[in-house]
Every structure is written in structure tokens, then in C-alpha cells.
């Protein structure tokens, strides 16, 4: 099904279908994200984040980045979120509302975030007001992504593997009980 979405979305005639899908997904993402930062239960917050992450994966599909979408699901949903839930449960998350999750002065955060959002939206509107995506879009093939990673970006890739190793060791060292 998803590839049908993809195919239709990227064809000329299917633009409107893709648009509808996109707006639904975007709405879900925004609502879930808002719930995530306002809910007063940690596990609920992680589950809302889960929804946001899935929605982002769906956005990737609409953008023709199939591999990135699959990676998003594998890494974020399969690993990072499980890890977070693990952490939440290990730190004795309560069932039901908690009182002490937020600072008292939320308006400062809201103010800063809104101001930041306003500035960004304004500049985006100024910069890319009526720029449309290329009509004839081809899904980016995994093979091409692999070629790109292992030729142009080989050095960052290797650096990243070292980073992951360092993070692994770091996490073990930090969390170890001695």
C-alpha cells in the first residue's frame, strides 16, 4: 500500500493524493508533538513521540526517501524508543498524572518557542514562498544512497562509526555500577 502511495504521490496526477496524505500526517505529527510536550505522564509522552516519529517516517516516504523512512522506523521506533521506554520504566514511571514534570514558568518557554517559530516561518515564507517541489520526482534508490555514502561521504561515515563506538563505551562506563 505504501508504495502505491509513493507511486501516486510522485506522479503528476497523484499530487493531490500526496498532499492530502501529507496534511493528515502533518496534523497528526503536530498534535502528537504538542501532546508530548504537555502531557503529564512520562510514558504517554514517549508514546506520543512514537506517533510523531512514525509520522516523520511517513513524511520521508512522501518525499521519496524510502531508505531513510525504513531507517527511521528501525532506529527510532525499534531502538531509540524502546531504549527510552526502558529508561522510563527503570526510573519507576508512575501510572497516572504526575505533578512535577514541568517548570512553573511555562510562559517563558512558550514565548521563546513562539518567537523562534515566528521568525523561522517568516524567513521561510520570504525565502521559499512559492517554490514548488519538482513535479517529476523519482524515488531515491537505496543503491544510489549506498553509493553516495561509500564514496562522497566515506570519511564522515567512518567518523560516525567511531562516534558510535565511543558512545557505546561511554554509555557502558557511565551506567556501570562499580
Amino acid at each position: 500500500m505504501m508504495n502505491l502511495v509513493l507511486q501516486t504521490a510522485l506522479s503528476d496526477t497523484g499530487n493531490w493524493i500526496a498532499n492530502i496524505f501529507f496534511y493528515i500526517i502533518a496534523a497528526v505529527a503536530v498534535v502528537a508533538a504538542l501532546k508530548m510536550v504537555t502531557t503529564n505522564n512520562v510514558v504517554h509522552a514517549s508514546l506520543y513521540l512514537l506517533v510523531v516519529l512514525s509520522a516523520v517516517a511517513a513524511t520521508y516516504v512522501i518525499l521519496g526517501a524510502e531508505f531513510a523512512a525504513a531507517t527511521q522506523v528501525l532506529v527510532y521506533l525499534g531502538a531509540i524508543m524502546v531504549l527510552l521506554l526502558f529508561g522510563v520504566m527503570l526510573t519507576r514511571a508512575k501510572i497516572g498524572a504526575e505533578t512535577d514534570l514541568d517548570y512553573d514558568q511555562r510562559w517563558i518557554g512558550a514565548l521563546v518557542a513562539t518567537a523562534l517559530g515566528a521568525v523561522m516561518m517568516y524567513s521561510l515564507w520570504e525565502g521559499f514562498g512559492d517554490v514548488t517541489m519538482p513535479a517529476e520526482q523519482v524515488p531515491q534508490r537505496t543503491e544510489a544512497v549506498a553509493d553516495e555514502i561509500f564514496s562522497t561521504y566515506i570519511v564522515p561515515f567512518e567518523a560516525l562509526s567511531v562516534l558510535l563506538l565511543a558512545a557505546l563505551i561511554g554509555a557502558v562506563v557511565v551506567a556501570r555500577r562499580d
Binding site: L74, A79, V82
Partner: peptide, 11 residues
Amino acid sequence: AVSSVSVIGIL
């Protein structure tokens, strides 16, 4: 990727 989603359900 999707096979790991079931973990979340179990958690």
C-alpha cells in the same frame, strides 16, 4: 524495521 515495533507493544 517493523518487526521491532512489536517490542513497543509488549513494553
